[in-house]
């Protein structure tokens, strides 16, 4: 029996889908069997980020309406055998979906995998309730901006009401330079307001956009800070204690020279 984790944020565009894809892939890299469930019904893009769009035949609606078997709809990732995706439907009638049916589906997926990662739609309406209904744990994604933190706070309150007591926080798109200059909300301040455990911080990284366009999760390439950040998050989910990344840039040639001469 696996664990279902919902990735949610309230506000749109903070990186839920990217985080779902990367955390899921990172867990698969660590040898776990993972299913990514795209619960963003009507707007489907988890498959695009993973580069699996052209393999979709059946989707979540087909499974729930029993037009196909669950195993038929699961798309096996091209890189990892034990990473699968259950895509969202785009155009089909979604009235068949309800928190109860989604919960049942998540239960069935948990039988087959170590982890079921659910990509939650933005907002707090029915789509949110459905995505949350089957989850055992939650990851709240936010960015260091006041509106995103406000929505995350609201979502944490709603998660508590749904019985998910200890959501974890991922602060995405941090720009170390801006934080240094004091122009960005500080991590400590965000954690202080939201009062939940910090699972990880992910720097703003251009490679993420580049890789999303290519359909390759960033974690596949170990050379970027964002990739490392997501790998660390996956390790923390498995219970390892991994220190937070520091974003101090390694000093360049001139930086080293200055250090030698004691200049600031």
């Amino acid at each position: 029996m696996g664990t279902a984790i919902v990735v949610t944020s309230g506000k749109g565009g903070v990186g839920k889908t990217t985080s779902t894809a990367n955390i899921g892939t990172a867990l698969a890299l660590l040898g776990k069997s993972v299913c990514l469930l795209d619960a963003d019904i009507g707007l489907r893009n988890l498959d695009v980020v993973l580069g699996l769009e052209n393999r979709i035949i059946y989707d979540i609606i087909d499974v729930i309406s029993k037009d196909c078997k669950l195993e038929q709809a699961l798309i096996r990732d091209k890189r990892f055998e034990h990473l699968t995706l259950l895509p969202a439907a785009q155009t089909k009638d979604k009235s068949i979906l309800s928190p109860e049916t989604v919960k049942e589906l998540v239960g069935a997926l948990k039988e087959l995998h170590d982890f079921v990662i659910i990509d939650c739609p933005a907002g707090i309406e029915l789509g949110f309730q459905m995505a949350v209904s089957g989850a055992d744990r939650a990851i709240v994604v936010t960015t260091p901006e006041t509106p995103a933190v406000r929505d995350a706070d609201r979502v944490i309150g709603l998660l508590e009401k749904e019985g998910i007591r200890n959501p974890h926080l991922v602060v995405n798109r941090i720009r170390p330079q801006m934080v240094k200059r004091g122009e960005m909300l500080d991590i400590d301040e965000i954690v202080q307001v939201l009062a939940i455990d910090l699972l990880g911080i992910v720097p703003d990284d251009e490679t993420i956009i580049k890789n999303a366009n290519k359909g390759e999760p960033t974690v596949m390439k170990p050379d970027s800070k964002a990739s490392l950040a997501y790998r660390n998050i996956a390790r923390r989910i498995l219970g390892e204690s991994v220190p937070l990344l520091s974003f101090e840039e390694a000093p360049g040639f001139w930086g080293k020279m200055k250090k030698v001469f004691g200049a600031k």
Binding site: R150, D151, R154, I156
Partner: peptide
């Protein structure tokens, strides 16, 4: 006891 969160 606990945090009163946005929207509550």
């Amino acid at each position: 006891k606990g945090t009163v969160r946005a929207g509550q």
